[in-house]
Amino acid sequence: MQINFKRSLINTVLFAYTLAAVYFLTGYFMGTLPSKEHFLDIDKIKVGSLLFLVMGFVLDCGSNWSSLKTIGDQLFSKKIEFVKTASNVFWKLHIYLVLILTIIASIIVVEFSFMDLFDEYGFQGAVRLFKGIFSPNFEILPRALHAIVETIYIAFLATFIAVPIAFFFSFVGAKNVMTHPVAFAVYMTLRTFLNIVRSVEPLIWAIIFSVWVGIGPFAGMLALMLHSVASLTKQYSEIVECIDDGPVEGVKATGAGILQTIAFGIVPQIVLPYISFTIYRWDINVRMATVIGLVGGGGIGTMLIQYQGQAMWREVGCIVVVIAVVVWVLDTGSAYIREAIK
């Protein structure tokens, strides 16, 4: 059998994982695991991981030599075997083993406990909370409405500012527009940058901006706007990448300039999906603005966290009702519009 890097890598990692899982689980159930401090030492972590990986590699070599059919073989080698021998189903057994070990380990890590779920004292607390929420105190309704309007406007402005920026970026971020080598470099840079922006949750951006411009709706708007630019650019440029080249060539062949080619060849094909994605993004932004309010982004979220902090569940109930109604209306409305313009 020839040497295959991908196959060896996945086998080594999986064997190492299996060995480590068996070691820790056995230790856990036998009560022979060392103390937690022992595992927080970075040097011990390094040595331990390396040890398991080396053992995994040894097992991989062994399996290769004994022609056991491993998961790596199944995934990356072209050879197809029809005979059902014990060595040929080894990879299946290995998958089951990994899965079972992982389930057991995750139950232990999560501290999953039916005891806590049905603990009487805790259960009463939940009942109290739900009682409050289900008998909302509508005295604070005017303030809640004021706050939700703020939230809707935060979301609107964030979307409104993000759309033109994303519109411009969507062409720069489309592979079929940026064919020239220099343009392709710009494309890669933009994509990478926006991927990074997008992978940071709006919640984190809100924290950053609330330090930058101070706690309040402006910070929330900036966070949502940044996230919207990144998300919309990705969605928009995927639309641009899927367009039909025919009309573009047709327009180009008349001697049209680059901007005219975009305006007549590309824009008519993308305008409706763009509108659809934009409405959907506003819809998402309203929901996100609520969450962002929890960390000081202003609007209804900020109000919610204040009452929640004081355990005023009846007031929380009122806010939840307001949020639910607004989200439902926007959700239905945006779905209806998107369906209509399809």
Partner: peptide
Amino acid sequence: DIAMIFQKFNLVGRHTVLSNVLMGSLS
């Protein structure tokens, strides 16, 4: 100066016929 017509017509489907013809004067 050198116009072209294509196997797949390559019109802009969402525009009107008139608008498509006027595209011939873009240059």
